[in-house]
Design a binder for these strands. Structure first.
Lengths: 332, 332
DNA sequence: TTGTAGGCGTTATCAA
DNA sequence: TTGATAACGCCTACAA
């Protein structure tokens, strides 16, 4: 049902080699070119990608491995990547691991079996052995959002440290001293960095920091809810709270509503990544918005460079976050 | 760098045919089998998919074409599809068209060039000619969310009519008679169906319906905002409003907040698809939640059937929606 | 049940 | 610049 180069060659009275050359934009005599173009149109010819892949041993594909597409953050990473990839001749396999470590492993194995030309990975676990396969095969990897120490790959991350530093600084200048923070799992790169920013701000302002105000959720709504309740039930509760991802922002708000605490009268609030709430929540919430689209675009650009055999300048790229100022912070 | 069937055959002292048979789960003598398995492990062999595709003329892939992954609705369709596909031997190409008609066309052309074995499509426009290519090539298509009249493909849709019917019915029994509704573009399948449900409820209850309360947005936040303002600025404004998708729900709320109208005192509110707001908004919003994961699962199941050469029973499958009851409806 | 051999559609080499 | 031809790795008659 499909026509082949051979058919085109026959109809255009040239050879397969010439047609192939035409298809790959190599010089061709003009009269051949026009006849080939006619033949292609007439036969509705399109290249057989499988045969091409087989021959060239390139699939012109990259794998994107992402924790959970339900999050705006993750989707925007993907959108950023697509923005760049769309203009290239690569295409993508989007693998949603649903925060499941086994699915992540499966996804990487799948991509390996597909012989993708490159990988962009937002890891939830440490698939050292699996990733090593790619390294061995010369398939470049770019990490995004999280860093992994034991794999040789550049990383594109948020400037987590300064994002939180700026939040704390802002709250301090608004008169807050008792500032709660709900972080991700203790051993996670992003959570560690955000904690560093938190701590550093207190140090720089010579204000004592209270470790009891630092909570570690697991980046889920339930985690945010639980941590928020813990903070609210403290004998001396914080006057402000920073919540460090989308789901926990949601969970924290559920907790706040349940306890009938009001923002910002009873507690000042800074969320993360939940853009819609800066527009529709009452009061409009202050929010850290990560530059996730730009992160995706950069990661894709780096990967393309690597796949083209070039090298990249840095080991880690940090992108600034945006702070959307709402009405959720009270001046003390 | 990669090893081939030939290598495995050599090492296991069998033949390529036997190894191939083993790989495709056909009967093999036990001692051969174990030696082959050893060899595969030792050589870290994995099949070359390109060669397989070339030979079998099947790619074992399906294309998913979706308007905008930023929407929970769309992502959940994809997740539903993936749930089913993960258990099959197919894999997916996820194409986010970003509500761009040209991107949709590009996506379909891309999938055609990839020779996918099937398509699941949530169309934003009518690519009759492009879709006909798939039909001609014998590639099955399943439509999701929207129906297209001129293409021969089963569709999995929401029970839009009864979803809105039930909303109106609920509002009527709560004493509302002046019920506004913000629908999608007039010519869109979902909008038409929802309008039918709206109208039918008034008819069944013998209550006069006011066409002026029916607004058509374009399924964007701005559209919802604009329509909401129009309703609020009417001389005799509705006492309740139904907003019929995620983005317009968001836009409508922005309008409501801007006009300093309160829910439900000044206006009762039913949204669509924005699940989070049933948990964190004050007051908790009543919301229609479409069974999008199930829709995805069903669409994938149907497509697999079609790809296996079987036929499906119906032309259109309607899935029930869920109604989450919040505190946003006032009893009159 | 096994092995040999031909061919899928493309690219790349080489001689013309 | 062109055309003939040999791979690429897999599958599948066919013969054994």
């Amino acid at each position: 049902v499909y026509s082949t180069i051979k058919d085109v060659a026959k109809l255009s009275k040239t050879s397969v080699a010439t047609v192939s050359r035409y298809l790959n934009n190599r010089p061709i005599r003009l009269d051949n070119k026009t006849r080939i173009e006619d033949a292609i149109k007439q036969l509705d010819y399109s290249i057989n990608v499988a045969a091409q892949n087989l021959k060239t041993n390139r699939t012109m594909s990259i794998g994107i491995v992402i924790p959970d597409l339900i999050h705006n953050f993750d989707i925007n990473l993907v959108k950023g990547i697509q923005n760049k990839i769309r203009k290239s001749s690569y295409h993508t396999f989007i693998m949603d691991t649903e925060n499941n470590i086994q699915f992540e492993k499966d996804a990487l194995e799948f991509l390996y079996s597909k012989k993708v030309d490159g990988i962009i990975l937002d890891p939830i676990s440490n698939n050292e052995e699996t990733l090593q396969q790619f390294v061995d095969a010369g398939t470049p990897i770019v990490l995004i959002d999280q860093k992994l120490n034991n794999v040789q790959a550049p990383a594109v991350v948020s400037d987590n440290v300064n994002a939180v530093y700026n939040c704390v600084e802002h709250l301090l200048t608004m008169g807050h001293k008792k500032i709660g923070i709900i972080l991700g799992p203790q051993d996670l790169f992003t959570a560690e960095e955000r904690y560093r920013g938190y701590k550093r701000a207190f140090e720089d302002y010579h204000i004592p920091m209270n470790e009891n105000f630092v909570k570690h959720g697991n980046y889920t709504s339930e985690g945010g809810y639980k941590c928020m309740l813990e903070l609210l039930e403290m004998h001396e509760r914080p006057t402000a709270v920073i919540v460090s991802n989308y789901d926990m922002t949601k969970g924290a708000l559920i907790g706040i509503n349940e306890k009938e605490v009001t923002i910002p009268e009873d507690i000042s609030f800074i969320g993360y990544d939940f853009y819609d709430l800066t527009e529709i929540y009452k009061p409009r919430l202050s929010m850290v918005i990560q530059s996730n689209i730009e992160m995706g675009e950069l990661a894709a650009a780096l990967l393309i460079k690597l796949m083209d055999g070039e090298s990249v300048e840095h080991d880690v790229y940090r992108l600034k976050t945006n702070f959307i100022s709402g009405d959720s912070i009270k001046k003390l």
